Computed example of a mutant assay.
Amino acid sequence: MSILEKLKTRRKPTYKMPPGGTDAHCHVFGPGAVFPYAPNRRYTPEDAPKEHLRALHDHLGIDRAVIVQASCHGIDNAAMLDCIASDPKRYRGVAIVNDGFTDKDFDTLGAGGVRGVRFNFVKHLGGAPDMAVFNRVMDRIKGRGWHVVLHVDAPDIVPLSDMIRKLPVPFVIDHMGRVPGKDGVDQPPLKALLELHKLDGAWVKVCGSERISMPPYAEAIPIARRIVDNRPDRVLWGTDFPHPNATHEADEADLVDLVPKIAPDSALQRKLLVDNPAVLYGF
Rank of each mutant, 00 (worst) to 15 (best):
L4E: 05
L7K: 13
L7F: 11
T9K: 15
T9P: 12
R11C: 10
K12I: 01
Y15P: 10
Y15S: 11
K16L: 11
P18E: 01
D23Y: 04
C26G: 04
H27Y: 14
F29Y: 13
P31A: 05
P31M: 02
Y37K: 07
Y43R: 13
A48T: 01
P49Q: 03
E51C: 11
E51N: 15
D58F: 05
D58L: 06
D58M: 03
A65L: 01
I67S: 07
V68C: 14
A70F: 05
S71L: 03
C72I: 00
H73M: 08
G74E: 03
N77K: 06
A79P: 06
A79L: 04
A79T: 02
M80C: 05
L81Q: 10
D82C: 05
A85S: 08
D87H: 11
D87N: 13
Y91Q: 09
Y91D: 02
Y91N: 06
G93A: 13
G93L: 01
I96R: 14
N98W: 03
D99E: 13
G100Q: 14
D103G: 15
F106Q: 02
G112Y: 14
F119P: 08
F121E: 06
L125G: 09
G126C: 07
G127R: 02
M131E: 14
N135W: 09
I141M: 09
K142A: 11
G145Y: 07
V148T: 11
V149L: 14
H151K: 03
H151V: 06
P155S: 07
S161P: 09
D162Q: 13
P168R: 10
P168Q: 04
P168H: 12
P170V: 00
F171Q: 09
F171D: 05
F171R: 07
V172R: 10
G177E: 03
V179N: 13
V179G: 14
P180K: 02
G181C: 06
D186V: 00
K191S: 11
A192H: 14
L193R: 08
L194G: 06
G201I: 00
W203V: 02
G208L: 05
G208N: 10
S209M: 09
R211E: 12
I212E: 14
P215G: 06
A220L: 03
V228I: 08
D229K: 14
P232D: 04
P232R: 15
V235A: 08
V235P: 07
V235I: 06
L236M: 15
P244G: 04
D251Y: 12
D251N: 10
D257L: 01
I262W: 07
A263V: 01
P264H: 04
S266M: 08
A267P: 10
K271E: 15
L273Y: 08
V274M: 15
L280A: 04
Y281K: 05
F283L: 08
F283M: 11
F283N: 09
